[in-house]
């Protein structure tokens, strides 16, 4: 009975980074926690998700073909359920934020340059567009079309709901950072392993770099 080395490294499309599946899972877990805690929608980690789904599919195929001990099968199965939960929860969290701030999200995504990391995955972009259209049609057909013509134009830019980036979050420092502005007039060193509670806006860029994580 051959236990295959089914889980090897994978390569990101732009960077040649070989990653073990364990590292992939850790990154996905971190992305999940960050997304749950952050007040705004974070950058898409679609590559991690796609890769993990591939791993799950490969695992599922292996389980069906191999003649393993049912105990071993159930171990794999249990782990797969855990990973599926993680992915589902991550995507659901993102969808919730997309729905809440749909117009702002679409504008932000559009404003990203080619070299920047994308905010939305392809599927999320399609979903966001459909959702925004649906909302607009709904508002038009239920209310706006009954208003006088000069009030029918809904000035989205003025009124759109935006995430509150001044919300307080708990952070864990991953990499030492010296002299960081963490408050209006306070800079401090962020020591590795330290935990702070700060306003999100001060650490948003550190978060996207990975120097801090939300906790």
């Amino acid at each position: 009975m051959d236990e295959e080395q089914e889980l090897e490294g994978y390569e990101e499309s732009d960077e040649y980074v070989a990653m073990t599946s364990a590292e992939l899972l850790d990154k996905l877990k971190e992305a999940w926690i960050n997304e749950r805690m952050a007040p705004e929608l974070l950058n898409s980690q679609d590559e991690l998700v796609e890769c993990m789904i591939e791993q799950l599919d490969a695992m599922e195929r292996n389980l069906k073909t191999g003649k393993r001990n049912p105990l071993v099968n159930s171990m794999h199965g249990l782990e797969m359920e855990r990973v599926r939960f993680l992915i589902n929860s991550y995507i659901r969290c993102r969808l919730g934020k997309i729905e809440k701030y749909v117009i702002d999200v679409l504008q932000q995504h559009k404003a990203r340059g080619q070299e920047d990391l994308p905010l939305l995955s392809r599927a999320e972009l399609e979903y966001a567009r459909e959702y925004a259209d649906g909302m607009e049609n709904h508002l038009k057909s239920t209310i706006l079309k009954f208003l006088p013509t000069n009030l029918q134009n809904f000035d989205e830019a003025k009124e759109l709901p935006k995430p509150n980036k001044d919300k307080y979050v708990f952070i864990r420092v991953n990499d030492q950072q010296d002299q960081v502005l963490i408050d209006d007039d306070e800079t401090t060193d962020l020591n590795k392993g330290a935990r702070h509670i700060v306003r999100y806006s001060f650490i948003a860029s550190l978060l996207s770099e990975g120097s801090v994580s939300l906790t």
């Binding site: 702002d104 504008q107 009124e159 709901p161 209006d184 007039d185 806006s201």
Partner: peptide
């Protein structure tokens, strides 16, 4: 569209705090 990230010494952030949330 950028979000005002300045310190409260700018009028922008104050107005955001006092702004009515339409929805």
């Amino acid at each position: 569209m950028s979000y005002p990230e300045a310190s409260p010494s700018t009028p922008q952030l104050f107005s955001t705090l006092k702004k009515d949330n339409y929805f």
